[in-house]
Design a protein around this nucleic acid. Structure first.
Length: 197
DNA sequence: GAGAAGATCTCCT
DNA sequence: GGAGATCTTCTCA
């Protein structure tokens, strides 16, 4: 069962990458595994561009890995890094324009017991407070690369049932060596699931 | 075909 | 607070 009226439509994603990144805060990432639903509130994101952004995978043009970033917005871009970790991005912009938003941290909403099993950790705070951690908690791997997130299938993004006020903070991006000066990281102020201060 | 770097996490001191 | 783990992907020859 999917509450499709809450699923974010294509038009949400096919906009400017920075706009999409900011508006993704406080939305819910939902993952369906068999009978179970894993849901987390998005509390931290980073925007990645194209030829204007040396930190982006798309900076040097299209490759087999990053081709999803060049398609239209609203698809999952999952890549493997550091020999251990997957990172989940949401593509943005229209067809032919590269752009993506890295989901860096979630606040668990439901399916928490399954997240604990996936992570083999008990402490709630360490289940999803980092890009490699949240993919492990939600069972996301390269198999989810290229999935359409607007269909309400095994992976999608939806409006929260209850709107909450929050204060947005923007800083330089984390864990990269170039392009650190761009204030393209956004997170919800004073949320305890942020990956780094 | 080889070499190097990477949008990170965990464990150890 | 710091280093090691570990493998995919890209670049260059």
């Amino acid at each position: 069962m999917t509450c499709s009226k809450f699923v974010l439509p294509r038009s949400f994603f096919t906009r400017d990458t920075l706009t999409v990144a900011r508006e993704l805060l406080a939305k819910q990432l939902a993952r369906r595994v068999g009978e179970s639903d894993l849901v987390g509130k998005i509390v931290e994101v980073e925007a990645y561009g194209g030829a204007d952004d040396p930190a982006s995978h798309a900076y040097r043009g299209m490759t087999p890995r990053n081709q999803v970033m060049f398609g239209k917005g609203g698809f999952a871009y999952v890549y493997f890094t550091y020999g251990k970790h997957y990172c989940l991005n949401v593509t943005t912009e229209k067809e032919g324009v590269p752009g993506a938003v890295l989901i860096r941290a979630l606040q668990p909403v439901s399916g928490i017991e399954m997240m604990r099993r996936n992570r083999r950790r008990k402490r709630l705070r360490y289940l999803t407070n980092g890009p490699g951690k949240l993919t492990e908690a939600m069972g996301i791997t390269k198999r989810q690369n290229g999935l359409d997130l607007t269909k309400g299938g095994e992976l999608f993004i939806r409006e929260p049932q209850v709107e909450e006020d929050f204060e947005e903070v923007s800083t330089g991006r984390v864990g990269i060596r170039v392009g650190v000066e761009k204030p393209w990281r956004f997170y919800i102020k004073s949320n305890s699931f942020i990956s780094r201060k």
